[in-house]
Amino acid sequence: MNGRGELAALAAAGLWAIASVLYGIVGQQIPPLRLNVIKGIVAIALLIFTILLTGESLSTSAPQSILLLCLSGVIGISWGDTAFLGALNYLGARRVLLIGTLSPPMTAILAMIWLQETLNLTDWCGIMITTLGVAWVVTERVPGSSLDVANLWKGISLGLLAAIANAISTVISRVAFSTGSVSSLWAALLRLGAAELILLAWLCLPNRQPETLSSSGRVTSRVIFATCFAAFCGTYLGIWLQQTAIKFTAAGIASTLLQTSPLFVIPIAVCIGEKVSWRAIAGVIIAIIGIALLFFA
């Protein structure tokens, strides 16, 4: 089991990097709440198909674990992901991912309070170095990027909400795994299923304020394909791997590695022809040192 959770977290971060780029594009045509519902439906269908294919059964010996995973999904996916997608429209991926670096320390502290998970000095050093490396990458100034004050504060508020929801839901999932024997695959389905029910109810509210987009656009077949592919990478595979990481490693370590998505955005940028600065490369090297400390602590 050694290293299994850490590898799953890094794989999830890589997939989320791909999904974040795609969601940042399709989010200009599909409002955040509706986009969250669509990606959830696609991922749930894929998870059900996978469960039927593998014949994996749900252990009902610990109903508390099932309820906790459902609660984790409501907080982390229905609230957190909707806030994250909204923040992307206001701030862009780089700034939102910077705010997300607050999540690992919050997760580690909450895990210490709720789970009595104690991290040694090397673990804490690894968390801080990795977080600093990611922050160094995403704080690089992008030429020509500017925001008005109203959008800035809306984006920051939504980004903070997403980071807090992510920290709380990670710890709740960790509690669920420590009190029952639910598999990572079923955990992903339970979390998504509960979140989807809340999101659908939210959409059906009669007095719900209509969602607005930063730019208008027609939903084309390319947008639909990109949304489905992002849901496959970031929601289906990403959440499955996320739950595997939370199950097999400490909550603070899992959260830190799951927040390394900006590092994986850099090779994507290179592939699409963007210029990568030495600062970004230095940030990656710093983060890799932190990741190594987490693996070998």
Rank of each mutant, 00 (worst) to 15 (best):
G3I: 15
R4E: 12
G5E: 12
E6Q: 13
E6K: 09
E6S: 04
W16H: 09
A17P: 00
A19H: 06
Y23A: 01
Y23I: 00
Q28P: 04
Q29S: 14
I30K: 02
P32E: 05
L33G: 07
G40I: 00
V42M: 08
A43L: 01
A45I: 01
L46M: 09
F49E: 02
T50P: 00
P63S: 07
S65N: 09
L69T: 09
L71M: 14
I75V: 14
G80A: 06
T82Y: 08
A83T: 06
L85V: 04
L85G: 02
G86R: 01
L88M: 13
N89L: 11
Y90W: 08
G92V: 09
L97K: 03
L97T: 10
T101R: 05
S103E: 07
P104L: 07
P104C: 10
I109A: 15
L110N: 02
I113Q: 10
L119G: 05
N120E: 10
C125Q: 10
V134D: 04
W136T: 12
V137S: 08
V137H: 05
V138S: 15
V138N: 08
T139Y: 09
S146L: 04
W153N: 13
I156W: 12
L158S: 14
A162F: 04
A162N: 06
A163T: 09
I172N: 06
V175R: 15
F177Y: 09
S178Y: 02
S178C: 07
T179W: 05
S184Y: 12
A187R: 06
A187P: 06
A187V: 05
A188Q: 03
L190Q: 12
L190I: 11
L199F: 08
L199R: 02
L200N: 05
W202L: 12
L203N: 11
L203A: 13
L205M: 11
G217S: 14
I224Q: 01
A231S: 03
A231C: 01
I239Q: 13
W240T: 03
L241P: 06
Q242P: 09
Q243F: 15
T244I: 14
A245Q: 10
A245D: 11
A251Q: 05
L258V: 08
I268N: 07
A269K: 07
G273T: 13
K275G: 06
V276R: 13
A280M: 15
A282H: 03
G290A: 14
A292F: 11
